[in-house]
Amino acid sequence: MKINQWFKVAALSASALVSSVSLAEDEPMKVGFVYVGPVGDHGWSYEHDQGRIEMEKYFDGKVETTYVENVSEGADAERVITQLAKAGNDVIFTTSFGFMNPTIKAAKRFPNVTFEHATGYKRGKNVSTYVLRTYEGRYVSGVAAAMESKTNTLGYIATFPIPEVIRDINATYLGAKSVNPDIKLKIVWVNTWYDPGKESDAANALMDQGADVIIQHTDSPAPLIAAEKRGMMGIGQASDMAHFAPKSHMFSVRDHWAPHYIKTVEAVMDGTWKPQDFWGGLKEDMLQIVSINPNLPEDVKTAIVTTEAKIKSGELKPFTGPMKDNQGNEVIAAGHSLTDEELAAVNWYVERIDAKIPR
């Protein structure tokens, strides 16, 4: 080969290499999501997916997302997470408590992938945790529900006996007791995040026990619909559920995940991401009180707004001592407010909740 021909070939090869690098740099970051329920559950998974959509729009072509819905917590989750990592996703969000161990296992196998797990407590070099202060919304719910109740009895549909659910039950009761010391809280455990049939049955069972306001930790609007059929009241969970029960719906506590998803992806992009335990709530606009029913009594509407404002400002911290559990043991000392680490380990009912935590 002549020297001038060699230079031409070398120049073409270099040009091809530069083009290849530019193409790689221009490719969008791939972000995967794993959902425990269907995106159409109108609750938890629905709002995570709304956050995904909002995040993708924010980055305007710089991010490409994918999701897998209806993933069982356990071996199936590990398989799905592994597939997303193998597919080249740079960031993977796993959005249910039961995905914790599968996420940790996958993260060890894919150290160059950034993992974020919702509501868990295990972290690693490439694993963060993130959670909403849902207990803040439950406290507001308890205040409003106790003021609205005519039977002096509230009903709570619980999912699984994990700290997140237990502290939300406590917060509901603490809010209710703050305006009515004699209020009762009935609890039904359904051992599912999403099952409209079970949720409806649980709501009816609670109403049969005298509850006239239903609060739920499950994800479908079935409890609200059941309450509407029987002329009772309810509070929406995770998303705005007002249109499912316009008469019975008091308000909804909406989860707004987009701010965290945007911030996380930006941090991965600019190389500043570090593992952390992130908590977002009313103050960060990641938890929102929405669609307050205009037909509620004025004092109830005022109490909803003022209680929300006090929590946002930090004036009101629901888990502040002195506080005892329902066995008479002091669980929070006078003047102390539980830290995030302590909140993540709540495994007791507050004083006067007449129930036992399933084991």
Rank of each mutant, 00 (worst) to 15 (best):
L296Y: 06
P297A: 08
P297W: 09
P297I: 08
E298L: 09
E298Y: 09
D299R: 11
D299P: 05
V300W: 00
V300F: 01
K301G: 04
K301T: 02
T302E: 15
T302D: 13
T302Q: 13
A303T: 04
A303M: 05
A303D: 02
A303P: 02
A303I: 03
I304C: 03
I304S: 00
V305D: 07
V305Y: 05
V305G: 05
V305C: 04
T307Q: 00
T307K: 01
T307G: 02
T307L: 00
T307W: 00
E308R: 14
E308T: 15
E308S: 10
A309T: 10
K310Y: 03
I311G: 00
K312E: 12
K312P: 02
S313P: 08
G314D: 08
G314K: 07
E315I: 08
L316P: 01
L316F: 15
L316N: 02
K317I: 11
P318V: 04
P318H: 05
F319W: 03
F319P: 00
F319G: 00
T320L: 10
T320C: 12
T320R: 02
T320H: 05
G321S: 09
G321K: 02
G321H: 03
P322H: 12
P322F: 09
P322Y: 10
P322W: 09
P322S: 13
P322G: 12
P322R: 11
M323S: 06
M323V: 13
M323L: 15
M323N: 06
M323T: 06
D325Q: 06
D325S: 10
N326D: 15
N326F: 14
N326H: 14
N326L: 15
N326P: 13
Q327C: 11
Q327W: 14
Q327H: 15
G328Y: 12
N329H: 10
N329M: 08
E330R: 07
E330K: 08
V331T: 06
V331L: 07
I332N: 01
I332G: 02
I332V: 14
A333G: 08
A333Y: 04
A334R: 10
G335I: 10
H336T: 14
H336W: 05
